[in-house]
Design a protein around this nucleic acid. Structure first.
Lengths: 140, 140
DNA sequence: CCAAATCGAAACCATCATGGTTACGATTTG
DNA sequence: CAAATCGTAACCATGATGGTTTCGATTTGG
């Protein structure tokens, strides 16, 4: 998880929620995120596979949110972009002739999963609607 | 957090705990991790700064754990290697002229911190002693 | 007191992920 | 039919990562 796709995905979805039923073009969205439209389309393509948004070509086309903002959690978005959110193990497998090397991966996998689950539980508690409220509550 | 240093650090510390008072050389440790001794020394240098281990040059030298295994948690190790464990924000700052772009970073920072804290709470519950027990409990 | 062992650290490298960019075809709308 | 928009492949620059070599400094033990 060194990449910014998760953050961009949340940003874009919040923007779509903010826009309501109106379709937004990747060019417009790229203007808010401050990047290239192709980058936006790449990320939105993943969100579309997950059933969160739909796209339409041609004039007047663009992207729309498919669910109510309160029905999309930050965990849903994480799953949709599914960028490795957990801890990677060794670059090359450890030495199996060593008692520690032999067992450490299985042991760590369990503990990492537990920690990851706790994080996901928190992400599941926040929805796009919460973000929208935060955005609208902002001064001037 | 795309790097494997956290996993390697835990592996190495578990090995030192396993070895007890005996000093282990970076070459020996590299044999268990299955990598280059310099990589091990690099990671151990960070753990030494954090006060977790000490090193000694010369024949008979090597690395030793400075604390009791039950006094070192996985969170302590994470802090010691301090590789970015959280979610990165945008690659380039969002457009401040957009209501969403203007506020999204501050909003997300808060939610990410909460999620991260939940994860760290779990990591704090596991110590090197727990790992050692898991290693020793392993069959044949 | 010397030889060997070990760490410390810099320098360099190959590989890969990432984000950005260009380009162009396909589709859809009006 | 023309313009807008998406879809996607291809390519690129950049930076992080893990590995490797090298050599000096320190320490130990004989």
């Amino acid at each position: 998880m060194t990449n910014t796709r998760y953050t961009v995905a949340i940003h874009v979805l919040t923007l779509l929620a903010y826009a309501g039923p109106e379709a937004l073009t990747s060019e417009f969205i790229a203007g808010s995120v401050n990047t290239n439209p192709v980058v936006i389309r790449r990320i939105l393509a993943g969100l579309r596979e997950a059933g969160l948004v739909r796209s339409q070509g041609g004039p007047g086309g663009g992207w729309q949110l498919l669910r109510a903002p309160e029905a999309v959690s930050l965990l849903d978005v994480l799953r949709a972009v599914d960028t490795e959110a957990s801890f990677p193990l060794h670059a090359t497998p450890p030495n199996l002739a060593c008692p520690v090397g032999r067992s450490i991966q299985a042991i760590l996998t369990g503990h990492f999963r537990t920690a990851q689950a706790a994080m996901e539980r928190e992400l599941a508690r926040v929805s796009l609607r919460d973000l929208l409220e935060d955005v609208k509550a902002q001064p001037a």
